[in-house]
């Protein structure tokens, strides 16, 4: 990890602001959620609890707030178990929805390579708390209003250092699709650009994050500007009004985000993290509702 100075911070902030000002439509993190799962151990304590509050700007003037609570436990020198529960509030032209989203449970295994480098391998599951068919007054809602994608997913990942860079790879595969969304654009009571997502079926994602971590001389501040690439591996589909499945053209492809994470270590046991992210390359169509033009989050972590 590099030691930073003020010029470096200003330079990185300018890059981030520049990217933020040149963003295209909106698709942030795939947020099938795994981009928020830490691939490296966040703290040295045996037990850690983290709460995180995030604000996300979505498509068609929707605003999302998520609240998550995480618990991680070091099971052995090499193995750590992480659990994260997410609830979300979405507010937009249809109204507001608040509900539990998903539970993530992952196990991380740290191994030493022959060259002495540490590599972290991660595997786990995402479990949905609803079937992605939340309604307001019996009106079916677009996916952006849903707090979960309604899929049981397998998650696998790896993290390691390559020179000064921090590399992360992950793969998220929906294995049980119980999405029962019933939004049909032609039957919607409000005009809008939300696509039909009746009985939506979602394809897998791969993620690649490359960061350039820096830390202050005192070790209190950590600073991790990073690029987050998410590739959606196929075109999603929905069932039309005739009960026939149709693929959604343009729903596969790349999303590229700029992300800035700043961590302040309050003590050995406690830390605060601020994260800012924005996309600058997006997919043509984003039917899953994972459309973020801006994401900001603050997290507090306590270990013992």
């Amino acid at each position: 990890m590099q030691v930073f100075n003020k010029k470096t911070i200003i330079f990185l902030c300018m890059i981030f602001v520049s990217v933020a000002n040149h963003q295209l439509a909106a698709q942030g993190c795939s947020d099938a959620g795994f981009c928020t799962i830490p691939l490296r151990p966040a703290a040295a304590s045996k037990n850690n609890i983290q709460t995180e509050l995030a604000y996300l700007r979505g498509e068609e003037n929707t605003n999302l707030a998520t609240l998550s609570i995480s618990y991680s436990r070091q099971l052995s020198k090499k193995i750590q178990w992480d659990n994260k529960l997410v609830a979300a509030n979405i507010d937009g032209s249809y109204g507001s929805v608040t509900n539990l989203g998903d539970l993530y449970s992952t196990v991380r295994y740290g191994v030493q390579s022959k060259s002495g480098k540490k590599i972290y391998l991660l595997g786990g599951v995402k479990i949905p708390f609803n079937q992605s068919n939340l309604k307001i007054r019996n009106v079916s809602l677009p996916m952006v209003y849903q707090t979960s994608l309604g899929t049981y997913d397998l998650i696998a990942g790896a993290a390691f250092s390559a020179g000064k860079l921090d590399m992360n790879f992950a793969f998220q595969l929906p294995v049980v699709q119980q999405n029962r969304n019933s939004f049909i654009k032609e039957q919607a009571p409000l005009a809008g650009e939300f696509p039909t997502t009746n009985l939506f079926r979602r394809k897998a994602d791969v993620l690649w994050r490359v960061g350039y971590p820096l830390k202050s001389k005192t070790g209190k501040w950590n600073f991790n500007p990073n690029l987050l690439a998410i590739y959606h591996l196929g075109e999603d589909s929905y069932e039309n009004v005739f009960g026939k499945r149709e693929t959604i053209k343009g729903s596969s492809g790349l999303t590229l985000n700029a992300n800035l994470q700043t961590t302040y270590r309050i003590s050995q046991q406690q830390s605060l993290q601020l994260s800012l992210a924005t996309p600058f390359v997006v997919r043509d169509t984003r039917p899953d509702g994972l459309t973020r033009s801006f994401v900001a989050s603050v997290a507090y972590q306590f270990g013992w």
Binding site: A87, N89, G95, R137
Partner: peptide
């Protein structure tokens, strides 16, 4: 308040907009 109600009750909180 809604967050806590959701977490404790495991049920959705919804409210329609004026437009809807």
């Amino acid at each position: 308040g809604c967050f806590f109600a959701v977490v404790l009750g495991l049920s959705a909180c919804t409210k329609e907009s004026d437009a809807l």
